[in-house]
Design a binder for these strands. Structure first.
Lengths: 258, 258
DNA sequence: ACCGCCGGTTCAAATAATAAACCGACCACG
DNA sequence: CGTGGTCGGTTTATTATTTGAACCGGCGGT
């Protein structure tokens, strides 16, 4: 494995609940020698990607992240375009909504909104990359992905996240095919044992999805009525985002028709 | 130089005017072999830090940047806290205001606002790291920096950016000493030949500044009245940001007194 | 047809990275 | 007070990865 990859993977360990990480914890999480991990942390810090608390010596994400994300938003205001649509959809359907962008063979969440109207709420972590085979967002993307990407996922390791995660390639293929027919992907307890969700692909300037928009509901209140009521607003919001990003749904996608 | 550093430096070439960069241009900018640069780009892309336009083959900043900046803001909402203060100050003084955080021995801008009321405007680039010796923000930080950091800068290479950049260590030391007395740093045409600015340090949870807040004015209208009118609002805004970040000005800083 | 530039690839040689062993500091416990 | 465990951190012989010269095909211009 490349040295660059080893270093960058350290950054993926940060999350809301893990805002600061010490050297020893990084060693445990990464499963590498302490000297190696330390060298990578120092080099990331020298380049501004990490900063170290002078008192606790723990590391956290540094200013370079903020600066480059500002640069990226200046040049491709993806999050600025997505944010109001996600917030509006969240208020309209009264549930947690999140948008994510394709990052290799996973989905990288970039924004979520939760109106927090209910006692039972979905827990969501921006830091967590989403698998394509076990989430509704992933299925929404797979249905229209480049064939080589789809085959790579279908023939690859289908990690079980819950007892209901689909790990049989043929069964997953049928799910993907059905998603392609309807344009809307659904999943129930395949990633989180208590959550059901629906998602629709979003497009940028290319022939394949660049990400997905998803609504998540605790399964205890994911009634057929509730699920049905979410569809139209979700589809419209995904269309809005795709339009904002300068994308179009291809002719074989149900959302290409009005 | 470390492999990680070489790869990360490629990311610093992006800017508003350089949103997409091809392989050949990266090679020219980095001054390294094409095979080496290509390997680094592919590895950054595999980890989500870059994405490649399928048509033009050019690279741009990828979704991992957005995700990690969202994680960082979730855990340390620096930009969220800074943004309204910067906008308010910009509206109040009618000029470009920017905030930056210390990244090693440079300043990494993370947010700016410009009310764009005048014909002559300051050009500002978030992508550009700011030197400590040649900017008002840098002087504001140096005045209260850890002594070893200050000496490292004063005894290091003082790169001239304009004809008036201070490159004599003794003269720079006097500027830093004067800044320490007043708490406000001023610079005129030392980084940009047409811009004057004033800055004040901002503190987080430590004994030394974590960054600075600065107001920039085209030198043609940086009259003594204008400069004087900017001081009090700038000081107040820097106090607000420091308070929001949970920091305090140390007793030897003029802003520690009401 | 040729040239220049584009993105990209290969693999022997060179370089950087790795990790076992070590260090001091600090804290909890008996 | 001594001991053990954990913390962050360092050194350096060995190993793995990176490097870059040379090469490739595609494309546009002359």
């Amino acid at each position: 494995m490349g040295t660059i990859t080893k270093a960058l993977e350290l950054l993926d360990f940060f999350s809301k609940s893990r805002a600061e990480i010490g050297l020893g914890e990084f060693v445990r999480l990464a499963g590498r020698d302490k000297a190696t991990v330390h060298r990578h942390l120092v080099e990331l810090m020298e380049n501004g990607w990490l900063e170290q608390d002078p008192t606790t010596r723990a590391y956290r994400l540094g200013p370079a992240i903020l600066r480059l994300s500002a640069v990226r938003e200046t040049t491709y205001p993806t999050r600025a375009l997505i944010r109001p649509v996600v917030r509006r959809l969240s208020e309209e359907v009264g549930e947690l909504v999140h948008a994510s962008l394709l990052q290799g063979d996973q989905l990288s969440p970039i924004f979520f909104a939760d109106p927090r109207r209910h006692g039972v709420q979905v827990h969501f972590s921006l830091a967590e990359l989403l698998p394509l085979h076990a989430t509704s967002s992933g299925l929404a993307v797979l249905a229209y992905a480049a064939p080589e990407q789809r085959e790579r996922i279908l023939n690859g390791m289908l990690t079980p996240f819950t007892e209901t995660t689909v790990t049989d390639p043929e069964e997953l293929r049928r799910l993907v095919d059905r998603t392609r027919e309807t344009g809307i992907a659904g999943s129930a307890q395949t990633f989180d044992p208590e959550v059901s969700s629906q998602a629709v692909a979003i497009y940028g300037g290319g022939d394949h999805p660049v990400g997905a928009l998803s609504v998540s509901v605790p399964s205890v209140r994911a009634t057929p009525e509730k699920v049905g009521a979410i569809r139209a607003p979700l589809v419209e919001a995904a269309r809005d985002i795709t339009r904002s990003l300068g994308g179009v749904y291809p002719p074989d996608h149900p959302l290409s028709r009005p």
